[in-house]
C-alpha cells in the first residue's frame, strides 16, 4: 500500500493482514486507525467531509513516511487516508509500521500520526443539526508534533 488517498471506505483488518502477508521478516506491526466519532465539542455529528489539496496530499504523506523510514529501522510504513464525504463510525485514517522488533514500529507509528495531523493538507468539515462548519486546528496537535523535533530513535 505505502501511500493511498481514496474516497472509498476501507477495512482496517484487511489492510493490517496485507501489511504482514508476504514478508516473513516482519516481527511487529503497529497500526493506528482513526474513526469518525459521533460527538465533537459537545455537538452531535451527522456527517463529515474531508477536503484535501490534490497534488500536494500524496507528496506530503510520502515525505512523512520517508522521514519515519530514515529515523527508525522499519521494514515498511503505510499511510491510508480517506477524502470526501464520510459517515459516522467509518475509518478515516490508517497507519501501519512494521519492523523486526516492536520499539521502532511503536515510535514510528506515533510520529507519523503526529506529523500527519500538523503537516498533511486535509481539512475536516462537520455536518451537525445546526449546519456545517470547519473544524479548528488544535494547538495540542502542534505540541505533539514539535516534540519530535528534538526526539528521535537515539534518545527514545
Amino acid at each position: 500500500m505505502s501511500i493511498r488517498v481514496q474516497t472509498a471506505p476501507f477495512d482496517p483488518g484487511a489492510e493490517l493482514n496485507a501489511v504482514h502477508a508476504g514478508n516473513l521478516s516482519v516481527g511487529a506491526v503497529v497500526t493506528f486507525t482513526g474513526y469518525v466519532r459521533d460527538i465533537n465539542q459537545d455537538q452531535s455529528i451527522q456527517e463529515l467531509f474531508l477536503e484535501h489539496y490534490p497534488g500536494m496530499t500524496e507528496k506530503a504523506l510520502a515525505k512523512i513516511r520517508d522521514e519515519a523510514l530514515q529515523r527508525w529501522p522499519l521494514i515498511d510504513a503505510h499511510i491510508l487516508h480517506r477524502v470526501g464525504p464520510l459517515s459516522l463510525a467509518e475509518p478515516i485514517v490508517f497507519v501501519a509500521t512494521s519492523s523486526i522488533h516492536r520499539e521502532a514500529a511503536f515510535a514510528a507509528c506515533e510520529f507519523i500520526m503526529d506529523y500527519l495531523k500538523t503537516r498533511a493538507p486535509f481539512w475536516k468539515k462537520e455536518q451537525t443539526a445546526s449546519g456545517t462548519h470547519w473544524v479548528d486546528g488544535r494547538d495540542s496537535d502542534s505540541d505533539a508534533a514539535a516534540r519530535w523535533d528534538t526526539t528521535n530513535k537515539e534518545t527514545r
Binding site: Y53, A60, H81, K117, R119, P121, W134, G137
Partner: peptide, 24 residues
C-alpha cells in the same frame, strides 16, 4: 511543500494558503 511565510519565491511558483490542517 509546506513552508513558512518567510520562504523566498520566484516567478512561476505555485503557492497555497490554507488554515491549520485537521486531518487524521
Amino acid at each position: 511543500d509546506v513552508c513558512s511565510l518567510q520562504t523566498p519565491l520566484k516567478a512561476g511558483d505555485e503557492l497555497a494558503f490554507f488554515p491549520m490542517v485537521t486531518g487524521g
